[in-house]
Amino acid sequence: MQREPVHLSEKELILAADGELSVRRRAKVNAHLEACWSCRERMRVIETTIAEFVRARNAELNRQLPPAAGPRALLRARLSEAAAATPGSSFWQFPFPAARVGQLAAGVAFVGIVLVVLTVFQSTVSAEGPKPRLGITPGETRPITVEEVCFYQRAEVVSRDIPNDMRQKVFAAYGIKPAQADQFEVDYLITPDLGGTESIRNLWPQPYSVRWNAHVKDKLEQRLHELVCGHQLDLQTAQRDIAVDWIGAYKKYLGENPSH
């Protein structure tokens, strides 16, 4: 069993400051920061340095910037000229050759949101506890490569706390009354570590107190991450399996009985 290092690395502190840690890793880092004054002081130095650098950079660059009004008016005029011309006719000469624009456009088109398309079925409470309703929460992913998923050994992908108004929307969609809300955690169906988004199509209320609960799902997420990064499972299959039936996926990848 490998021991955790005593203090946080500089890299981890910077990633934490920039909000680039996974939910799981961030929780550990926060717990350490609460406990450890030394690391908190190191974090303060990082934040102060960033603040001073930004202040210096802005002071230096902003005074060179002419006021926006002139350039804005010029752009307005150019836009109406361009709007009058047929799309794609003339003004591509500078700064991009047409081939480059095509390439760029293709790249950008790829960055659309990829939806995991699933059949709609409804299922609320079964013997194993409530499940996500795929009509409301089909699972939605952003474009992400395996390299990004495996960026760090354990899933260090951007994710944030789910904002309160989003939580309320999820509860409303599932017909959960405010009084019952504290029995549920709003959780990602496809974890951000595997490319899941923070949209209502990827969030569902997970009950705390059942056999198949959030801790069990965490285990599955960790396992899928290992498999994807070990090239034993492709990312799309992992995303689909966890979205369609995460309990089934747990049984498939980890065995019949949940371990907590």
């Binding site: 350039p71 836009l79 794609g88 003004f91 991009f96 950008v108």
Partner: peptide, 10 residues
């Protein structure tokens, strides 16, 4: 300016 004209086309 050119960037935002390209954005318009895009």
């Amino acid at each position: 300016q050119e960037v935002f004209l390209s954005l318009f086309e895009h």
